[in-house]
Design a binder for these strands. Sequence first.
DNA 1: CATTTTGATAGTTTTTATCTATCGAAACGC
DNA 2: GCGTTTCGATAGATAAAAACTATCAAAATG
Lengths: 313, 313
Amino acid sequence: MPTIKQLQYLVAIADHRHFRRAAEVCNVTQPTLSAQLKELELRLGATLVERSRSSVVLTSTGREIVARGRRVLAEVEEIRALARLANQPMAGTLRLGVVQSLGSYLMPLIIPDIHAREPGLRLYIREGLPKQLLDQLEDGAIDFLFFPLPVERRSLAALPLFEEPLLVVAPINHELAASRSVSGTQLRGENLLTLEPGHRLYEQVRILADEYEARLSHDYEGTSLDTLRQMVAMEIGISLMPALYVRSEVARETLVMAMPFDDEAPARTVGMVWRKGAAREETFRILARHVRTILSRDVPEVRVIEEDKTAAP
Amino acid sequence: MPTIKQLQYLVAIADHRHFRRAAEVCNVTQPTLSAQLKELELRLGATLVERSRSSVVLTSTGREIVARGRRVLAEVEEIRALARLANQPMAGTLRLGVVQSLGSYLMPLIIPDIHAREPGLRLYIREGLPKQLLDQLEDGAIDFLFFPLPVERRSLAALPLFEEPLLVVAPINHELAASRSVSGTQLRGENLLTLEPGHRLYEQVRILADEYEARLSHDYEGTSLDTLRQMVAMEIGISLMPALYVRSEVARETLVMAMPFDDEAPARTVGMVWRKGAAREETFRILARHVRTILSRDVPEVRVIEEDKTAAP
DNA sequence: CATTTTGATAGTTTTTATCTATCGAAACGC
DNA sequence: GCGTTTCGATAGATAAAAACTATCAAAATG
């Protein structure tokens, strides 16, 4: 198997047609270069150079190998350049995963600004179901997540970013729709629609229904937030929906109205999740700062969590 | 600077996600692989792999370097494959030079047959002036020549292939045109046209003009054999032309006639020329045998020289 | 003909790559 | 919860490779 240095020596010999000058360019002595060329010819089992006193000439095999040797050296140089670039924390490509109930509403708010601040960083975004995303993060198919917290996997670290309140969504002619905000007690006896089991949101709404003595509907379970909204519009019941979804899809809807809770609104926490020991942890922390800054400035619907706090050790 | 082995180890780690299995595949011990990966990361100044007990994961930089590493390994494998192929004497590409007064007439006679016999060999043919070709041969721009002999360059070796007689070419109504062959004495007093000085043919015809007491024309010197032929057709004089040219260009000409000399016709020797010490000498000798065989069978106009004899030591 | 220059060889030294032995830490099975 | 197994890392020793200096024979040069 040839070595990269041997290919370097061969290319230098081809360029200079002179052993001593080639050796000089490669920063070795002439006997070293001569011996390494001989070793290369031995390893390849082919004569690459015709030696003479008038001037060194490549064989036809030598010429073809020199051409490929140049490509090898160029690619090795690309590897080195890439490594130099990647040392900058905000360079390269990262794979980001987000849950379906979040991605479409959060990404448009933050991606343009992140790209403006870090043009050298490329984010490849992948949506998926919660368990699927966690599995992919753990086995390295994804680099980090925007994900509802907490996360019960010991190999993962989590950094809370913001709290996304739930809003009360009712039909336009519902008595609650006339209120600027809603207290929990006003939900008593209401028919509460929510997503089918398996979603974090379902769990949360179930708890709230118990707390406020509302009736959790089992006759009509939505498969997505959009189908929930359509059922509310048809006056089948009311629902609780995340603030970013409301801002994106409900605010301009004419058949339903979204009202915030009074103080102490129920909310879900969204954070960044990565593998403990991840090499790009610094990158993730810088990204987290950017996300907080952007949301604080542009998105009053969520409550940004400022403190830098990672779950687990 | 990374080494090829280090890139191999990295690629194996990427494929197997396990240091011990990667080491096994690379035929080294696990500590060796671990240390070499560490050394690679040191040389590149970048972390390529996240180590953990659950499973090994590449960093984003690591992934990109693995992709380029695969290309490097693929190209090195191509180099090895090329070397294996080139060990066969009749493989690869050679650059052949021929003088203008020979190439167009000799190549069509021998190339198809050579290609049939040696499909793995490619000949890149270049025409040029004699001195130019010899210079290019000496400094490696050309690999070998078909060339008139002898050649006075000590760094070159020559192998005679055939003798190409000169024929008398006269206008169709010239008295010599009625003869089946011509003796030298019949040329006495004739106006002999030939190429301008600088050509081997000029020298040869000048000597013959002296010998036969013909008049070497200085008023009309041709720049090519074609222009000579046209002047003969216009009855300006007669000329002496090489047999292969005659076969190719004169035999079907209606205004001129070509007659061979009686026994002991003047001729020029054509041979193969290469650099002394050339790596492909075996290839050249095999080619020479092919050329002799083809000409013996198909081209009675030339006298093939059978003995294997190289000029100089 | 003397001197210089070229690529090759021999012996030595330095550096690198590999080994074995063993480590600390985490995962696994009972 | 504890003993065992497995993982990647480290230390020291050894082998191999790469580099050096000194010098060679042969050819080119002046």
